[in-house]
């Protein structure tokens, strides 16, 4: 259920929806839908989102990832943070048209996760947690942008192939420009993902938080699969100098793994990170050095 504390995030979502509508509308009727409205809605939404994140952090006295909802809100903040910087640095036209609807949809999805639904299963405020989570989140954010870029690439490629020279065609940048930025975002995200996974491995080994068979945990396996996909992508580009459609398709596949690793594992069950609190389970074990127990309700 929504509470008063959801309101700032709902306002951010509303602004992201305005941004999505205006960035799409700008392609269809640029005289009615001013691009500036889209840009400022994104920035305003991001600022409110940032304030909300700070509020959540102060409330939980930690980085705001104490439940799935907070975690999702934090990840989306990272996506916007990376997007605003990329937009400022590269000024690639129409990237927001492809990214903001995705951000809006994911934000609405995030709202459906009740704050009390799933809780973190590890003790917070640990160096390892921050070292593990932050690089991975920023890496995931970069992969989200590369996903939007890949959809953009395939859209423009389809238009060129099928000779569809409408308004969208004229508003989208060159294939080469998109391809270069896909490559840049992946090569920015991959080292961060690697760093996060290495820290995570150290953490799990040194403090034994997932048990002896930690490597069989679904999130660990999916995380590794995600890493392998992006490693393959980098290999294709760096060693075999691959470009074009295949890279775009593989980037989309990579993002599906990111999404599944991040959210899917909550549904298929994983000891890692979060656990669903059902009526049958009245408490969950908080993993970590202190072996605290967190009682629900």
């Amino acid at each position: 259920m929504f509470t008063l504390s959801h309101i700032p995030f709902i306002i951010s979502i509303a602004l992201y929806l305005v941004s999505s509508t205006w960035s799409i509308g700008h392609i269809i009727k640029s005289d009615i839908f001013n691009k500036k409205v889209a840009r400022w809605s994104t920035i305003m939404g991001f600022l409110i989102h940032s304030g909300y994140l700070a509020f959540l952090g102060i409330n939980s006295n930690s980085i705001p990832i104490t439940n799935v909802y907070e975690s999702f809100v934090s990840l989306l903040w990272c996506v916007l943070f990376v997007f605003i910087n990329i937009d400022y640095l590269y000024k690639l036209p129409s990237l927001d048209t492809f990214l903001m609807p995705l951000v809006s949809a994911l934000s609405i999805w995030a709202l459906t996760f009740d704050k009390r639904d799933m809780f973190i299963t590890v003790s917070l405020q640990k160096f390892w947690l921050i070292a593990h989570i932050i690089p991975i989140f920023i890496g995931y954010a970069a992969f989200t942008i590369s996903f939007s870029l890949s959809v953009m690439y395939l859209t423009q490629q389809r238009q060129l192939k099928h000779k569809l020279f409408g308004r969208l065609f004229s508003k989208l940048p060159s294939l080469e420009g998109i391809d270069n930025l896909i490559w840049k975002t992946i090569s920015f995200g991959f080292p961060l993902l690697t760093l996060g996974l290495v820290f995570g491995t150290f953490w799990v080994k040194t403090q034994n938080i997932l048990g002896e068979m930690w490597y069989l945990d679904s999130k660990v396996i999916l995380g590794l699969a995600t890493w392998l996909i992006y490693a393959a992508l980098l290999h294709m580009r760096l060693v075999a100098s691959f470009h074009g459609t295949k890279i775009a398709l593989l980037t989309i596949a990579g993002f599906c793994f990111v999404l599944f690793t991040f959210i899917g594992t909550f549904f298929i069950g994983s000891k890692h990170a979060f656990q669903k609190v059902s009526k049958n389970v009245t408490h969950i074990e908080i993993l970590g050095e202190s072996k605290l127990h967190y009682s629900h309700l």
Partner: peptide
């Protein structure tokens, strides 16, 4: 919108190459 064959061709090329 471009209105000559050569400028249209260059416009297409610009949509492929940066």
């Amino acid at each position: 919108g471009k209105v000559s064959i050569s400028s249209v061709a260059v416009e297409f090329a610009e949509k492929i190459f940066q």
